[in-house]
Design a protein around this nucleic acid. Sequence first.
DNA 1: ATGACTTTCAGAGAAAGA
Length: 263
Amino acid sequence: MRIATWNVNSITSRLQRLLAWLESTGTDVLCLQELKCAAEAFPTEPLRELGYEAAVNAGGRWNGVAILSRVGLEDPVVGLPGGPEYEGVTEPRAVGATCGGVRLWSVYVPNGREVDHPHFAYKLRWFAALRELVVRESGERPFAVLGDYNVAPTDEDVFDPAAFEGATHVTPAERRALAELRDAGLADVVPRPLKYDRPYTYWDYRQLAFPKNRGMRIDLVYGNPAFEATVRDAYVDREERKGKGASDHAPVVVDLDLRHGTA
DNA sequence: ATGACTTTCAGAGAAAGA
C-alpha cells in the first residue's frame, strides 16, 4: 500500500496536478494539508471519479486538511480532539481515518509566526493536544500522524541553521514537542531525498530556493512500531516541486507492506 | 534544467505562509 502526505497550498489551484499525480504514482492514501478552500468547494466529484473517498476538514480561506483513500475510509474524526482555539476559532488542522487497516491522521500544525507571537504559544498548545491524541489512539495496530509539522527536527533539516537564528521552526521548544511525540511511542520515518543529500520537503517560492536546494524538512511521518514494521520505502517526490504551478511543498511517499508487518 | 513568490478574498491590497 502506498501512502503519502502533501501540503498542496490550495487544492483548487493544484487540482489538475493532484489528479495527475494520484494517477501516475498509484497512491492509495493521501494526507493533504493547506486545502485553502471552503468545505463546499472541496473537489469531491473529480476525486471520486478516480476512485477516492475523502474525509475533509475545511473551513474557508486558510488551513484545511483531508485524507483521500481508495482502500476504504472508516471511523473518520474531523478535528483534533481537545485542540486549542486561536482567537476564539477552532481551525481546520486535523482529520483522522482508518484506511486499509492503518489508523492515520493528516495534520497541519500552526506555523507560529514569531517566537514571541501568540501564534507560537498556540502552536505549542496544539502539539500538546496532538500528543494526547497519540497516547489515546496509538496501540497495537499500525498508527501514523502525517503532515506539515512546521518544525525542522534537527539542524540537518534546514539548508543553513544560521539563516534560522531567532526564527520559528527550529527552536528547542518546538523540537521538544516532537521529542514528546517520540516519547509517546512514535518514530520519525525519514524519507530518501532522491537528489542531494538531505530529504527536504519545502522550498520557498522566492529567491530560487528550489533550484539552489535551500529547503527544509518539515513535512513528517511519525508512526508507531506496528506502522514502522510495515515500511518498505520512503522518499520525497521532489519532481512534483518542479515547474509552473507547483506547491511550495513536495509530497512525502511511504510504501507499506502490510502482510509482512508485525501487526 | 530547475527559474525570479503564491494564494485567497475581493475587487486593492492585506494577510499568511515559514
